[in-house]
Design a protein around this nucleic acid. Sequence first.
RNA 1: GCGCCCGUAGCUCAGUGGAUAGAGCAUUAGCUUGCGGAGCUAAGGGUCGUAGGUUCAAAUCCUACCGGGCGUACCA
Length: 585
Amino acid sequence: MIECGVIAADCYTENGNSMLRDQIQEIISGAVDAAKSAGQLPNIPIASPAIERPKQADHGDFSTNIALITAAAVKKETGDKVNPRQIAQAIVGHIPVDGLIGAVELAGPGFINIRLAERWLQHHVRAIIDAGDTFGNINRGDGARWQVEFVSANPTGPLHYGGARNAVLGDSLASVLEAAGYDVQREFYVNDVGNQLDLFAQTLYARYQQLYGQDVELPQDGYKGDYMIGYAQQIQAEVGESLLLLPRHTVLATLREKGLAIVLADLADELSLIGIRYDRWFSEQSLHDEGLVEQLLADLTEKGDIGEWDGARWFRASNYPKNDKDEVVVKSNGMPTYFASDIAYHYDKFVRRGFDRVVNIWAVDHQGHVPRMGAIMAALGLDPDRLVIVLYNLVKLLRDGQEVKMSKRSGDFLTLREVVEDVGADAVRFMLLTRGPESGIDFDLALAVEQKNENPVYYVQMNHARICSILLKAAEEGLAAGSAAQPGDDDALALLAHPTEFGLIRKILEMEEQIDFAVDKLSPHNLTHYAMELARSFSVFYDQCHVLKAEPDELRRARFLLCWAARTALARVLHLMGMSAPESM
RNA sequence: GCGCCCGUAGCUCAGUGGAUAGAGCAUUAGCUUGCGGAGCUAAGGGUCGUAGGUUCAAAUCCUACCGGGCGUACCA
């Protein structure tokens, strides 16, 4: 569902530190080279090894299958059968145990397990605190300019709950990309062209007339939701009855414009309820107004990509890979299609604005449009890989176990605003973010309200608040200096020794890998699981290790710093997911 | 028909070709007179839809089938 070849070309941060996992990888590579030089390994090319996080704690912090891969490569190259454990032994002998690495073990069929040095873990608490709200950032993107276009719902009414999933996905993905070093722009494409908006204006007109007691019916297929009455009232408040006497076409033009402004304000307001704001709202109409659509159609016609038959103008998409049919760009009635705008829109994104990559978040019912987007890219002479479509599955609304079809036109739909009012913004975001995009969601509002206190987001936030409470109390009682480095801190941190203390530090250190993983998948849903694990790691530590009453003073200081680090990490992951990190609740 | 996606614990879902498949909720049994119990510990619960194949190694990759969702417009 995601066509994308994102490659971590460069994971180094400005100060020269790379991701922990990459540091391990470099050490392994170094050991392999050394083993080759010493004649202990045959000098054949070896695919880059996987550096993994073992599922079981007693397998260490990292493990690598390089010996298993190498054995297979040797067999393929020379026909000789080699014992992977022998190869592993040769490599292990060249892995330096100092600084970062505390222990190296050979295990199972030939895995090499690596344990981080306790001393390194203890002292890394300081680095976590100092990173603050940039903790976990990686430099994978190296400043590449990416755009995430999401929601882009028809501007004809409030956002329904399915659109909320799009919003949460897009916004959190954008945040994660920023954390991974990309320069990200959030964009909402406003479809202010076409007959949906005409119908919207006509409905608005009818509602407006009804406010003055006129017996007018809504247009057929018009927008039947009550919210249209509210919009009409806003118009009424602004212009009074002045529109009643004007000719119909004038009124419709006015209502189109004023109605659009009202809807966009409504959408922006609604999205702000879950903490989302856009860098740009891009008007489809503007592409027509400035003649870009027309110009590109002319260019593509000259190039032979557009032809005319059956009374319409067609884009020869079938000339491009993965496309088996052509697409209409200008209908036989002379009206350009949405697809024609898309050509201009993507030209604007890539050629004019120069985004290195654009990610569009689409509901899965638009999947049929994916191939032709590739054809647009190719026709414009652009690398299709620069456009990535993330498809997410639909949210099915249930009432009393029965499916309710959501439709703006029928007026029977649950809005984001309603859900946020009943369930809460953070809980809504968490719920929508927990699952992968390809997973379908059945949503029952009554059930969600009933279960809102069981939402794991409160567990995460409660642990954040709990830490804040400890830190506050420590300050009040004068038990610890602030988070700034103190002379004795190094010795103090070296006192951290309890398994739950190390467990917490280790869990916090996974942050950068979680961010990297979310970028790999172009989906941040792993962060919800990570946030729960992080909260649990703290909770377990809290249960086992007293902070304020810890003796001696140095240990209390060390645990105070560890709490600060945990708070830093919890706040960071909550913010990446677009949720609040409350100091009390 | 063809194309894409999904099928994992009672329910909702994670799971990067690796070692003993996990979490939340629910259930059961303990703990808690300690910095926030919205907590902690433990237990039960699985033919990873089915059948083949590739591999030293498959929930993961390939093929077929079964079941479900979506798509297949001069709509967006």
